[in-house]
Design a protein around this nucleic acid. Structure first.
Length: 278
DNA sequence: TTAATTTGACCGTT
DNA sequence: AACGGTCAAATTAA
C-alpha cells in the first residue's frame, strides 16, 4: 500500500504540474514518469515476494517440514482441501508496454524465454519465460506473457512461483551451502528501488505523454475504486484510474502507465490476502 | 564461444 | 483427441 500511495502522490504532482511553463517542467515530468515506472517495477517485485512469503508462512503453520506428504495431519483449519493438481501460486497482472515498445516493461528480474504457443481463441500467442538462474541457483520462478486481444499495447503477465535466486550472485566460488531455500533478499529489492528512484539517467528519457491529465485522485477516493475504465484511450496515452478492491475480489487495478490490474490466485487456505494488506 | 531465442516435438491433463 | 505447458535441437545474437 505504501508503494501504491507513492503512485498516488506522483499522480497528484503530475496534475499540479499540469498547465504551467513548458520548459523546466519537462524535466520534472520526466522525473515523475521515471518514478512511476520504478514504482511499478517495485510493486511487481514485492507482489511476487509476498506471495512467496504467504505460501511459506502457511507451510510453517502446518508445523510440518514436509507439508505436502504430511500424512499425520489433523484438521487444523476448516481446510476445504482441494487436492487438484494445480497447486501453484499464481499472480496475474495486466501491464502496458513500455513507451512505444513492443514488450512489457522490465519487471526487475532476468527471464529466459523457453516457449511460445498459440492459444485457442486468442489473437496473440503466449510466451513462456523461466528465471535465468534456474540452473545456476535452482530458481523455479516462471512467467507467462500474452498480448491482450483488445488492446495490443496491453499484456497479461502471469507470475508463477517466486524467485529464490539472488540477482547479483555470480556463481558460488566453492560448492558451499547452496541457498536452496532462502527467502528473496528484501534488502536488495529495496536498495534497487531506492537507486531507481534517485538516479536520473538522462540517456533514456523519452518524450512525455502527459499521462494523467484529469480527475486527480485524492486520499478520499483512495481505497475505493474511481477506476475510469474508459475505452476511448488513445495510443500511448494513459488516464487516471485506481481500483483497489481487496476485501472481496483481491483485485488491484491501476491505470498509471504500467500496471493496469493484478490478481492473485492462490490455492485455498494457502494465503490470506486481506491479512497482508492489513 | 557462450548465451539467448525460435520452433516443432513431446507429454501430461482434461 | 485437443489443449497448453515444457523440452531441446537448431538458429541467432552477444
Amino acid at each position: 500500500m505504501e508503494l501504491s500511495n507513492i503512485m498516488n502522490l506522483v499522480r497528484q504532482l503530475e496534475v499540479k504540474l499540469g498547465g504551467s511553463q513548458t520548459h523546466t517542467l519537462e524535466v520534472c515530468k520526466n522525473l515523475t514518469k521515471q518514478i512511476s515506472c520504478s514504482t511499478q517495477r517495485s510493486i511487481s517485485l514485492v507482489t511476487s515476494y509476498y506471495l512467496d512469503a504467504g505460501r511459506k508462512r502457511s507451510a510453517a503453520d502446518a508445523a510440518a517440514p514436509c507439508p505436502l506428504s504430511d500424512a499425520s495431519d489433523a484438521p487444523f483449519k476448516t481446510t476445504k482441501k482441494r487436492k487438484t493438481a494445480t497447486e501453484k501460486v499464481k499472480n496475474q497482472m495486466r501491464v502496458r508496454s513500455a513507451a512505444g515498445g513492443d514488450i512489457p516493461a522490465d519487471d526487475g528480474h532476468s527471464w529466459r524465454k523457453y516457449g511460445q504457443k498459440e492459444i485457442l481463441g486468442a489473437k496473440h500467442p503466449r510466451s513462456y519465460y523461466r528465471c535465468t538462474h534456474r540452473h545456476s541457483q535452482g530458481c523455479m520462478a516462471t512467467k507467462q506473457v500474452q498480448r491482450t486481444d483488445e488492446d495490443s499495447t496491453l499484456f497479461d503477465v502471469i507470475y508463477i512461483g517466486a524467485h529464490t535466486c539472488v540477482q547479483n550472485a555470480p556463481a558460488a566460488a566453492t560448492a558451499g551451502p547452496p541457498p536452496e531455500e532462502n527467502l528473496p533478499d528484501v534488502h536488495s529489492l529495496l536498495q534497487s528501488l531506492s537507486s531507481n528512484l534517485t538516479s536520473t539517467p538522462a540517456s533514456l528519457v523519452p518524450e512525455l505523454i502527459s499521462p494523467f491529465s484529469a480527475a486527480p485522485s485524492t486520499s478520499e477516493n483512495w481505497g475505493v475504486s474511481p477506476a475510469t475504465s474508459d475505452s476511448n484511450q488513445q495510443p500511448g496515452v494513459s488516464f487516471p484510474a485506481f481500483e483497489f478492491e481487496v476485501a472481496a475480489g483481491d483485485v488491484m487495478t491501476f491505470e498509471f502507465g504500467e500496471v493496469v490490474s493484478a490478481r492473485a490466485d492462490v490455492p485455498d487456505d494457502e494465503f490470506d490476502i486481506s491479512s497482508f494488506f492489513a
